[in-house]
Simulated scan of single mutants.
Amino acid sequence: MLLERAYAKINLTLDVLRRRPDGYHEVDMVMQSIDLSDLVWLDCRSDSEIVLDLNAGHIPSDERNLAVQAAMLFRKYTGIRAGVQINLEKNIPVAAGLAGGSSDAAAVLRGLNRLFDTGLTSDELADMGAEIGSDVPFCIYGGTAIARGRGEVLERIAHPCHLYVLLIYPRVFVSTADIYQALQPTDFVTAVQSERMVQALMEQDVDAVPYLVHNVMQHVTFAAYPGVKQLADKVESVTRHPVHMSGSGPTLFCLAPTVQQANRMYNALRGVMRDVHLSHFVSNISNSGDGEV
C-alpha cells in the first residue's frame, strides 16, 4: 500500500480576462500549495474494481468523485486492468476554494504511477489530469505556478519566500459555477497581477506579499454570500491584517511572515470563532510520495 499526500492550494492572485467560446473563463493566477493535505492510500485489489473508501459520509464514493475518475483515466491511458483500492482521509474542506478534489485526483495519478511502476513523467500525468479538471495539472506538481488558460497552462515558479497561512473556513457551500456566472464584463481585466506577485516572492519580500494578494472574484462571492463578507470583516478586525479569499471561496486566509506572528493571530482568532487552521507554504510536491505504509 502506498501513501500520497494531496496538498491544498490557495490563490495568491486570481484575474479573469474573458469568457471563452467554450464556456470556460480565461484566467491568470498565482497558485501556491500549502501543507494542509488529504491522505490517499492506494493498493492493488484481487479483482478488477475501483473502490473508494473515505472518512466523509457526505462525499460521493462513486464515479462522481474525482479520485475515482483519476483511477479510471489512469487505467484507460496505461491499459492496466488491475483493481485499485483507494482509502481517502479528507482533511481539506469540500467546495472551499482549496482544490481538495483536484488534489485528490492528482495524488491518485501520482500514486498509481508509482504503484504500477509505469514510469510516466509529471508532465504526462499533468496532461492526463487536465481531462479531469483545470486545477489537477497544478496539483500534480504543487509548489508555486502562474496558471493561465482555464488554469491548466502552467508556468512553474521556484522562489525562496516562505509564509505562514491562517485559514478560516466559513461553513457555507459556494458554487464555483454560480460565482463565475455572476462575473460581469466589468470584472474582466487586461492588467494582471501575477508578475508583481512573482517578483515579490522571488525577492522574498514577506512584508509586501500579503498586500499584493488579489482575487477579482472576492467581491462577487461576498455579494452573493454576505455571511462570508461579515466573517472576513471580523477576521480583519481581530488580526489587523489583510484578509483574502481563495478561488471562488468561501475559505478566507491571512498571511504571516513568521511563525510567532502566525501563532498570535491563530490564538486571537481561536478565541472568537471556529474552523481556524494554521498552515504554511510548501514547495514542489510532484516527486514527494510518502512511500509504502
Rank of each mutant, 00 (worst) to 15 (best):
T186Y: 11
M265K: 10
A126S: 08
Q69K: 15
V136T: 06
A147W: 07
Y141C: 13
A106F: 15
K229D: 03
D207E: 03
D205H: 03
P242T: 14
N267I: 13
N11C: 10
A182I: 07
S286H: 11
I168R: 05
I80N: 05
V206L: 07
S61M: 00
P60M: 00
D43R: 00
E203R: 15
L39W: 02
A224W: 04
M273D: 01
V213K: 03
G249A: 14
M245D: 00
H241T: 02
G247M: 09
V198C: 10
L212C: 05
S175P: 01
E236A: 15
R81A: 12
K229T: 12
M72D: 01
S279V: 08
V259R: 15
H244T: 09
M197L: 08
A56L: 12
M202K: 15
S288E: 06
Y164C: 06
M72T: 02
S237N: 09
A256K: 04
V40F: 11
L54D: 01
T258N: 03
A130E: 01
I80R: 00
A208M: 01
V136I: 09
N65M: 01
K9L: 14
A56W: 06
Y225T: 04
G271Q: 14
G271A: 13
L54E: 00
F188M: 10
G133V: 02
E292G: 09
P160R: 03
Y141S: 09
T176A: 13
D275Q: 15
A191Q: 07
A232E: 04
A262Q: 04
E4F: 11
H219F: 05
H162Y: 06
F74T: 11
Q204A: 14
M29K: 01
R75Q: 05
Q260G: 09
H277S: 13
A71G: 10
V206A: 07
F188P: 08
G111H: 05
